[in-house]
Design a protein around this nucleic acid. Structure first.
Lengths: 236, 236
DNA sequence: ATGTGATTTGTACTATCGTACAAAAGATCA
DNA sequence: TGATCTTTTGTACGATAGTACAAATCACAT
């Protein structure tokens, strides 16, 4: 009898489900949700359109599963890094460590599932921009806890800044983070090739430094109240 | 015979073309390009689907016209404000004025066509995230000049910061700006109602203050070279 | 009022969408 | 091997997409 080595090297894709997930992730992240058809995804994954329906029932179900797959590990990693960051004594160093703990898991390479990955972050950016319903629900109930934890930690290291200001600035951080992953080529273009917007290490360092400084800016209430409208007309 | 008052209060829309443009702008900005059908736009504008084809030929043509309509006036306004900002003597004040000159036209109310408007900026954010082809072409050839002008002006007021760093930070500024317009509700939610993310004046002040501080951060080359990886593991 | 050009309507065509479902193929184990 | 369950394929259906186009309607100069 010819011994079949259980399940190895058949014509069958070893894990079609994963291939579909990966293909969908990439396509959604670069083109948006509605611009990508189930057939596009199937073709990119080397699968049959019907296979997508079989594994994920609907297109929304596919997106949902992508989120489920990443949210847990990513938040876990962030929590670990945050916990370590909070143990840093020096306040300046601690703030930087906290920001880095927030940024790093969002940037780590796409092939690394456990770390979250830039691809998933870019996906989140696109879904957020498109106002995707499925994404909005998951985000609100999955990331808000983490966001609060980070805001609290930052607030602890910057006690003299009102919480409101910290919320705004962390909001800006997320926007900058998203945008860096969405259009990294713009950095390369504007710097006339002197900087590589696609280099994660570079982006992280730039983002962390800029953000730390932004957090350390004086509070708005007491900041330059007489300097308002130095130049701009009062339109609004 | 029933007298029809020549051309007053007829059933005909006074300017259907404008109505279609406005409706498309709003729908694209909130749902993305592909999620909105020509029929959706027509219905929102109180028009017939065929009317859209008549005025703009294709759906892409409609998007193109929206950009054409806004880019000119918005860049003009920015140039004016930038010119005024560059005349400010004090370097700190000048930097703030420059940033404000960049941010203000992007935020001014949507009904104000000449000023650009938040609606159009939100549209740009969404198109950028979706990687829309039409938008990308226009953006690159319309906004890059303005961006360079602002980067140069900022560099003049911060001579000790490398141009590369300034490019990165202005990139972050645009990302933060976009994100503030895309999901203002997130700010309200995270601040537990203490801040209104939808209030433009508030957003502008927060964004300007944070950004000015970010620009003023020490240059990356000389910034804390020994502090790297205080906490984070070296995954990448 | 009437003819003319501009605009709006109504409708239809083709392509593609998400999804369903039966049949085929592969895997698993008695 | 043959039965059974899981996965993949092929195909089809109804809905909706973008767009084209002829007919109807309007504004307006004559």
């Amino acid at each position: 009898m010819v011994r079949k080595p259980t399940s190895k090297e058949t014509t069958r894709k070893p894990n079609m489900r994963e291939a579909i997930l990966a293909a969908a992730e990439e396509l959604f992240a670069t083109n948006g949700f509605n611009a990508v058809s189930v057939r596009d995804i199937a073709q990119a994954a080397g699968a049959n359109p019907g296979s997508v329906t079989y594994h994920f029932k609907t297109k929304d179900g596919l997106l949902l599963e992508i989120y489920r797959r990443h949210c847990g590990p990513m938040n876990l990693r962030r929590s670990e890094l945050l916990a370590a960051a909070k143990r840093v004594r020096d306040l300046q160093d601690r703030l930087e460590a906290i920001v880095r703990a927030y940024v790093l898991p969002a940037f780590t390479s796409g092939s690394d599932l456990a770390g979250g990955g830039a691809r998933f972050t870019r996906l989140r950016a696109v879904m957020s921009a498109e106002g995707n319903e499925v994404a909005r629900k998951i985000i609100a109930q999955t990331f808000d806890d983490t966001s609060h934890a980070f805001i609290d930690a930052i607030h602890d290291s910057l006690p003299h800044i009102p919480r409101t200001d910290i919320v705004w600035r962390s909001h800006f951080l997320l926007g900058a983070l998203y945008y860096s992953l969405v259009t990294p080529d713009r950095v390369s273009r504007l710097s006339r090739g002197e900087a590589d917007g696609g280099d994660p290490a570079n982006a992280i360092e730039q983002l962390v430094q800029a953000t730390v400084a932004a957090f350390q800016a004086p509070a708005l209430d007491q900041a330059a109240p007489a300097r308002r409208k130095t130049v701009a007309s009062s339109k609004t």
